[in-house]
Design a protein around this nucleic acid. Structure first.
Length: 342
DNA sequence: AAATCGGGGCT
DNA sequence: AGCCCAGATTT
């Protein structure tokens, strides 16, 4: 509602989830997250693993780690800072999110500059310099857009209006200029170059990497899993064991060398030892990953060493803090193994 | 300034 | 098969 101030906790969670993520993808995660962690205190006292479970499949897992750290910091502070600088000093909150929380939750007259606003700025002011180099310039010009009294009086609505304009009319391709309220003041439209802006520098090509992961199941349907290191790619999420991904493909002989528990593989399934039961292709931002999923039934999962992982009942695997990649690997592996059994 | 960091939906 | 998305952090 106009002029209403939103709950800063809710605004914070939604803005973090919406970073580089579509509204459609966020909505179910948002509701589930608030149900599981209703307030700052609930989030701060929860174990990180539980937060990663709620984040499972949403991507960019440093957001979940920083969210948890930030909740602890907010408890220390006694609540949210109400200004942009204070907000931006918190973990996981950069220039955009600080401005968004300040405007939407606290009514501070600032303009959160996201991809939508950058695009609007590039067109209104006909900025031809390519992204991402032009970021600073686009942001500097965008913050002049709210100088009118309506924007000053209703910062939250103005921010939302910019987002809506970028999402419905001033879209990346084929913008609907004829419906745009700023049609006459848009410099790019005057020049007829609105559909070409903002310009972007070509992206580097995406290399391919190769991985192997093992689906090891014992007679009681227990699966061996482990936790990835707490930092870096998919940091803190649960995965099937396997060697580090590399730039070259894996031969069957190499796989046999690195397979865990080779001495305990059972022939109960009549599966040739170390059979590929499925292949998974997964595209990350900066490389494409091709994974061979190998499966075997082992006589019993031994008490694994810390770095080897831990056993989990098959029916509970779905509730682990899996990445989407590992969800695919588990499903592919289980289905492939079933094919051999049946 | 460039690289890292996910995943899905749309064209 | 690219391109995009309510970006932040590290190098």
């Amino acid at each position: 509602m106009p002029g209403e101030v939103a709950d800063p906790y809710h605004v914070w969670i939604s803005e973090i989830m919406l970073q580089q993520t579509t509204v459609t993808a966020v909505i179910p995660y948002y509701h589930n997250f608030l149900e599981r962690f209703p307030d700052i205190e609930a989030l701060a006292r929860a174990p990180l693993d539980e937060v990663l479970q709620a984040w499972s499949g949403l991507g960019y897992y440093s957001r979940a780690r920083n969210l948890h750290r930030c909740a602890e910091e907010l408890i220390r502070l006694g609540g949210f800072p109400r200004d942009v600088a204070g907000l931006q000093a918190l973990p996981g909150i950069g220039a955009y999110t600080a401005a968004a929380i300040a405007a939407i939750a606290f009514g501070v007259p600032v303009v959160p500059v996201d991809g939508n606003v950058e695009r609007i700025s590039a067109r209104i002011f006909a900025v031809r310099a390519p992204m991402p180099g032009a970021r600073k310039q686009l942001a500097a010009k965008a913050v002049t857009l709210n100088s009118g009294p309506a924007a000053q009086n209703r910062p939250s609505d103005f921010a939302q209006a910019l987002f809506d304009l970028g999402a419905t009319l001033c879209v990346p391709r084929s913008p609907a200029c004829v419906l745009c309220p700023w049609q006459k003041s848009c410099q790019a439209r005057k020049l007829g170059i609105q559909a070409e802006l903002p310009r972007k520098t070509p992206k580097a090509e995406r290399p391919t990497r190769y991985g192997v992961h093992f689906l090891l199941m014992d007679e009681t349907d227990q699966l061996l899993v482990r936790r990835r290191p707490p930092q870096g790619l998919l940091g803190g999420t649960i995965e099937l064991p396997g060697p580090e991904w590399r730039e070259t493909m894996w031969s069957a002989d190499e796989v046999a060398e690195v397979a865990p528990f080779s001495d305990r593989v059972s022939d109960a399934l009549r599966v040739p030892q170390w059979t590929i039961v499925g292949k998974v292709r997964h595209v990350f931002t900066h490389f494409t990953l091709l994974i061979d999923v190998y499966a075997a039934q082992v006589n019993m999962l031994p008490n694994p060493r810390e770095e080897e992982g831990f056993p989990v009942a098959l029916e509970k695997v779905g509730s682990l803090a899996l990445s989407s990649l590992m969800r695919k690997c588990v499903e592919t592996g289980v289905n492939g193994l079933d094919d051999y059994v049946s």
